[in-house]
């Protein structure tokens, strides 16, 4: 079943000015249910824009986005939250620092639901949260009443991840969510990511700068460059690839951009 359908997505930033950027250039993409898609790309390739457009933080100039067959192209981010859960690159963005872990989890527990003036944060739900925190394996279950600000970046990212799956989302968006972490913590968060995606059979899209993660995680990888999807690698193909292949691919693109008819003519004359 198709989970996300994207057609003709185009987004131009700073239109008409000197630093005009075509962040998305007629992007078409179909993501099926239980796909775990990793997205890699050069800086400014539009991979983060793609994620933001899916999440609703950025409204595209052209194109259509459907989630579960429903068109959401112009819906703002909060209206899509009933389908989508997010983990941000910046560990500070995913949680409210001055509120307790329990309160943060409650906010996630209510994702996409109406918030009534009810006292839901009772002993029962706290014990449920405690069990969930225990699954992170970070000894956070004892710190339910601690404020988020006292946690390390990695712990916060782990909690954000837990918050994202607390109400099983239709789509999980991960925006370079380990980029700001040290390698050891990043590995831990990646392990949790894999675990949650597998346990909950999630449909996930992960933007990453790490070719390793792109290769290692998920069943499908797309490569983006200058707002376009330049390659779509299936799970079978991924098994054969190495990081060098990714690097070569990007190197190829870089060279391709430098090619002019003159240069080709010169190279030909020097070659044969």
């Amino acid at each position: 079943m198709t989970m996300i359908e994207i057609a003709g997505l185009t987004k131009l930033f700073n239109a008409g000015s000197l630093d005009e950027v075509l962040a998305l250039d007629d992007v078409c993409l179909e993501i099926r249910e239980h796909d775990f898609l990793t997205v890699i790309g050069t800086n400014g390739s539009g991979k983060s824009t793609l994620l933001n457009v899916i999440a609703g933080n950025i409204i595209p100039d052209k194109g259509i986005i459907r989630i579960k067959g429903k068109e959401v192209t112009r819906h703002p981010d909060f209206k899509r939250a009933k389908y989508i859960a997010r983990v941000f690159q910046n560990p500070f963005q995913g949680t409210a620092p001055d509120m307790t872990i329990a309160e943060n989890l409650l906010m996630a527990w209510l994702r996409g639901k109406h918030r009534w003036p009810l006292l839901s944060l009772n002993r029962k739900i706290k014990s449920f949260f405690r069990d969930q925190l225990a699954s992170l394996d970070m000894d956070l279950e004892k710190r339910l009443e601690n404020v988020m600000g006292t946690l390390s970046g990695g712990q916060r990212q782990a909690v954000t991840l837990l918050m994202a799956v607390l109400q099983t989302p239709d789509v999980l968006l991960l925006d370079e969510h380990t980029a700001a972490l040290d390698p050891k913590t990043a590995a831990q968060v990646i392990r949790l990511t894999r675990k949650f995606v597998e346990e909950h059979h999630l449909t996930a899209i992960m933007v990453t700068h790490s070719m390793n993660q792109a290769l290692e995680l998920g069943n499908r990888t797309i490569m983006m460059h200058h707002g376009r999807i330049i390659d779509d690698i299936s799970s079978e193909e991924k098994k054969k690839l190495t990081i060098d292949d990714f690097l070569n691919k990007f190197e190829d693109i870089r060279k391709q951009e430098k090619l002019t008819p003159e240069l080709i003519g010169r190279l030909k004359a020097l070659y044969c």
Partner: peptide, 11 residues
């Protein structure tokens, strides 16, 4: 406290 986070939770 964190508008980005709460928007992501559907608010």
């Amino acid at each position: 406290n964190n508008p980005v986070m709460i928007a992501a939770q559907g608010v």
